[in-house]
């Protein structure tokens, strides 16, 4: 299925998709973008790698580890990792939402602070919404990729 055209295109396109995904994630709290769409794009990049190079490429080619060919798709090491990513993301998102309660403001309240004098950037805006978005991002990436890799393996 995967031709040389596919593989070459994937090699060029995947880094671009990932960069766009990260930028969408970082600007999402006050510009178009956010954790969800960033996560979907990231998952799309990974899916492209899967289609072009096969399901085990991340393990063998990138991480240089062996793959147990006999194990079912649910026991696959990356799938277990994706599932842990879902839990981690959910925990981050809920914790960010609940953090407001400690400061006596409603659940899900967000805040921000400007940091001045940062080299190169001069001024940078740090927001708690970004942390929440990172949580959403993790859930989306973990969920889509575990579905894709399990269904793909079957």
């Amino acid at each position: 299925m995967s031709s040389i055209i596919m593989r070459t295109t994937a090699r060029v396109v995947v880094p671009i998709i990932l960069v766009v995904a990260i930028s969408l994630l970082l600007q999402g709290h006050n510009l178009p973008g956010g954790g969800f769409i960033g996560g979907v794009l990231t998952a799309a990049a990974f899916a492209l790698v899967y289609v072009a190079y096969g399901l085990d490429y991340l393990e063998i080619g990138v991480l240089d580890r062996d793959v147990d060919p006999g194990a079912g798709p649910f026991d696959h090491r990356t799938v277990a990792l994706y599932r842990r990513l879902i839990v981690l993301g959910l925990a981050i998102a809920v914790a960010t939402g609940a953090a407001g309660l400690l400061f006596g403001v409603p659940f899900l309240t967000q805040t921000f602070v400007y940091v001045e004098g940062v080299p190169l950037y001069h001024e940078i805006e740090l927001t708690s919404a970004l942390v929440f978005d990172v949580g959403v991002y993790c859930v989306v990436v973990g969920a889509i990729l575990s579905i894709l890799s399990v269904v793909g393996a079957e």
């Binding site: 409603p106 659940f107 899900l108 309240t109 967000q110």
Partner: peptide, 9 residues
């Protein structure tokens, strides 16, 4: 009798 809550303030 009725309490409201504004999510995210």
């Amino acid at each position: 009798g009725a309490v409201t809550y504004q999510l995210g303030n």
